[in-house]
Structure formats: C-alpha cells, structure tokens
Amino acid sequence: MPTRFSTVIILLGLLMWPMTGAMAHTWGDPVVGNLDSIGSDTMAGLMLRWGERLEQRYPAVRLQLQANGSATAPPALAEGTTRLGPMSRRMTASEREMFEASHGYPPTEIPVAMDALAVFVNRHNPLGKLTMTQLDAIFSDTLRCGAETSIERWDDLDRPELAGPIDRHSRNSVSGSYGVFRRDALCGGNFRVDVNEHPGSSSVVAAVAATIGGIGYSGIGYVTSAVRPLALQEGDGPAVMPSERTTLNGEYPLSRTLYLYVNLPPGESLPPVERAFIDLVLSPAGQDSVRESGFIPLPESVIAAVRQALGLNVPWGHVSPR
C-alpha cells in the first residue's frame, strides 16, 4: 500500500543529547521536546523538510508527523491530540465551529506557502489555452460557470487540429486539490461521472502523459515534461500560464494557499517548540524548503505581516514569558 493509506508516523531526529550546554547558551529558552502534526497529505513532504531543518537547528526536538489528509487536522486540533494542523485548504465553517465548541476561541490560521493548480494536456496536444468556461464545460455536467453546452469531445472546441474523445483525469474526491478545483474551476458544480479519479497527483500526470486525448490537473510541482500546462483565461482577460509570478500577483485563477493551523489561546504566546518551528517556516530558509517541495513561497510582505501578528519579530532572548 502506498504510504498515504497508512498512518505515517515519521520520527525525526533522535533525542541525542538533550539539554546540552551548547543549546542552552545559544538561546534563552531550551527548545526541547516533541512536536505533533496531524493533517494534509499534500504537505507531508514539505513538513518533512521543515522537520529536518528544525532538527538541524535544535537536535533535541523531534517532529511526529501524521499525514492522512487535510480533513483529519480539524478533529485532531479540536480534541487536543495535536497542536499543529497543516491543511492544503481553509477550514470550513463547520470545522471552525467544532474547534470553537471545544476550546472557546477560534484556531489560529497561519499561511505558509502558495500552490497553483496547473491544468495540463498530453505533450502532443497542440492546445495552448482554455477559458474558464470551457474548462468547466469539459469537467462538469452542471455548467455553473456559464457554458451553454458541455464539451464532450475535443472536436467541440472548434479547432481544426483537435479531434477525438476527451480523457478526463482528476484527484480523488477527498483531496484538497479536488475541493479547490471544484470550487474555483467548476464554480462549485459537480464533476462528470466519467472523470477518472486518481489517488495521487503524480498518478494524474502519468495518466495524462500516457493518453493523447488526456486532460488533468494537479499542483504545479508535479508537472513533468510529458504533459503541457495550459494557459487559462478568465472572461475577456489575458490567458495566463501558471507560474510563481502569476500566482503571487493573483492573475492565475487556480491558486490556493497552504495553511498551518495552531491552537493558540488569545493573549498567550506560542510555546517554545512551536515558536521555533513557525519561526523556521516563515524564515528565508523555511521558504527555500517550500520551493524545493514544488510549491510557491509566500511574498515577503505577507510573511512580514504574519510574523508581526504572531510576535515573531522580537529577538529570541527577550520574549521568554517566564
């Protein structure tokens, strides 16, 4: 079984020399102990990289990671089994209510990275761009984005060089990518029944690469040279290719933010271990890990604002509340 089906518990770092003198005199507060994380499968690799970097900085910390999917984070946060919940989408209203019902205050939402959903076709397909209405007409049968009729075959696009049936590929219905695509590309409508559902993003890419009439979507980090990403056009606007720049300036229509949810009572500051982790995530080194994992780093201004809100700009030695 692929790892995403079983509970993946990754123990990072060994408790090698806890409380070594070297640690204590570098930082005001000892950063020691376990950090639990339960949530997104998309972000598993990214969390792992951050965990490795954290361990390099503080050998006495270990990150325990369970990556079963974004939907597992809110219950775990509400029940208090974890204090970190990575999610590849925003919490829904009902998930927020569940957290508030058990803690009395809302969860703290920290954006940590951006991701663009690329729509791609087989590399032999000459198609260069699609409008958002056409995209909806290809993938949905509810046509909420304003198309008159469904696009059943490539011939329906009225391009002489395109013909034949369309092979549609998607992620499975519980993944964050599926939810984002459904909300932003299908205007909240439903997928057609004959859309193939794949358990992983790389599986979508492989399937589109193998079929000449294939079309699919995945996070931009998964796109290989065997498929060709399409430019997307909203209304009468320009057709936009997915890239770091177009995602950050909001021109590309299918983008999402990846979040880290933490349980932070109002008026209190983060415990040392979580503080060290989030400080790392929102540092240049942490954002390098984002790029290495195939996601898009947050813009500087957003990082500065988030750090400000969390009180992370103060040098370490001075914040110890004790």
């Binding site: 829904t92 209203a93 909420r144 219905s173 519980v174 909300r183 909240g188 439903n190």
Partner: peptide
C-alpha cells in the same frame, strides 16, 4: 434527484473540502 440535473441520478461524490453542497 439532485439540484442542477433534469433526471434522478445514481451518483457517488463525497466532498470533505466544502460545506456548500450536499454530498451525493
């Protein structure tokens, strides 16, 4: 019978990601 369709349908579409629609 689901909203947006002319005829009753057999559909399996679970969605954990949004609260907006009733899952099928």
């Amino acid at each position: 019978q689901y909203p947006g369709y002319d005829e009753p349908q057999y559909r399996w579409q679970a969605n954990a990601a949004t609260d907006a629609d009733t899952p099928m």
